[in-house]
């Protein structure tokens, strides 16, 4: 069936090209879609192996490989906040054999916060689809005398500039989430940057800082064990893992939303039919119940959309985080 179609396509294509009806590139694209992929697909992950982005990427890569009939190889190109790997992906041959797992960090925050990034998240990439998102959870050291966001805001306001919060680093989502809350609630909680989610979690556990707006997979185990007190989630809906913890929005700050999304991008100029094929396969994979269960184990949940929606999301977030970054005076050089 497939072979017949292919032959028919080739014959029809040659005739049309010969007749000058459609340009040759149109023919080439059709034939690419039918033969793609011709070799193993490289999936660039701009973070080191074993990290949360890498884990999601590997889970999806394995299934995508099965569906495409070619291996999808994860290529970890970590460093410089994910900008090194993303730049490599932006400059790769746009034939669908190089893809990248982009996130809020690589495609929104880094371009907005770094003084110079050698890629443009909007102009250099073809968005394919999101696959997952990870919520952020505001946790307090149990010694802090506040049981919900309202009490915490009151406490912070009663002693301005006295409380501290930890982040996974300057310009990380964990900092931006807290800075947004600082602004929304009129608080002045001081930023103490740490080198990653692990050390930031340790600082909160040990009471070196009072608060942490941490990535769900990093702080959930401690919240469940009662070592850190969860008071609000940054997503627009409550998390199934912590149904009793309200969202920031419902605690009095409507419209507040911070989460980390992860999605697939191809370099600009990748043939349309290839993108469509990838979108179909990836959407099916991300929405399958097995993958949903796997994501959940890693503190994430399935989330898919269309390329147009993804582009719109990116643009609106570039605007939203851009403002916070500017207001907080964050410039990464």
């Amino acid at each position: 069936m497939r072979i017949n179609n292919k032959i028919a396509g080739v014959v029809a294509g040659s005739l049309l090209v010969a007749a000058g009806v459609i340009p040759a590139s149109g023919f080439a694209q059709t034939s690419i879609a039918q033969t793609y992929p011709t070799k193993p697909v490289r999936l660039i992950v701009a973070f080191p192996a074993g990290g949360s982005t890498d884990i999601i990427a590997r889970l999806v890569a394995q299934r995508l490989g099965e569906k495409l009939g070619q291996q999808v190889i994860v290529d970890n190109r970590g460093g410089a906040g994910g900008t090194i790997g993303t730049e490599i992906a932006a400059k790769a041959t746009p034939d669908g054999h190089t893809l990248t797992m982009g996130t809020t960090s690589t495609h929104v925050i880094a371009p907005a916060a770094y003084a110079k990034v050698n890629y443009d998240p909007v102009k250099d990439f073809e968005p394919i689809t999101l696959v997952a998102s990870t919520p952020y959870l505001l946790v307090l050291h149990p010694g802090v005398k506040a049981n919900n966001l309202k009490e915490f805001v009151a406490l912070a306001k009663s002693q301005p500039g006295k409380l501290n919060y930890a982040s996974a680093g300057t310009g990380s989502t964990t900092q931006l989430a807290m800075e947004m809350l600082n602004r929304a609630a009129g608080m002045d909680i001081v930023h103490i940057p740490y080198g990653g989610n692990g050390p930031a979690g340790a600082a909160a556990l040990g009471g070196q800082v009072q608060a942490l707006f941490g990535s769900m997979p990093a702080v959930l185990p401690h919240a469940q064990a009662g070592r850190l007190r969860p008071i609000a989630v940054g997503t627009s809906k409550r998390s199934p893992a912590l149904p009793n913890v309200p969202t920031v929005a419902e605690s009095g700050y409507p419209g507040f939303e911070v989460s980390l999304w992860l999605g697939f991008f191809a370099p600009k100029g990748t043939p349309k039919p290839v993108l469509t094929r990838l979108q179909t396969e990836l959407t099916a994979i991300a929405n399958s119940p097995e993958m949903g269960a796997q994501f959940e184990k890693n503190g994430a949940s399935s989330l898919t959309n269309t390329p147009a929606e993804m582009m719109a999301l990116m643009k609106s977030e570039l605007d939203k985080y851009g403002k916070v970054i500017k207001a907080a005076g964050i410039v990464l050089k």
Binding site: A49, S52, I55, P217, P221, A225, R227, Q294, K297
Partner: peptide
């Protein structure tokens, strides 16, 4: 990371 891939959240 290896533990997390196995679906085990490291922690207490």
């Amino acid at each position: 990371g290896a533990l997390t891939i196995q679906g085990i959240a490291p922690g207490p």
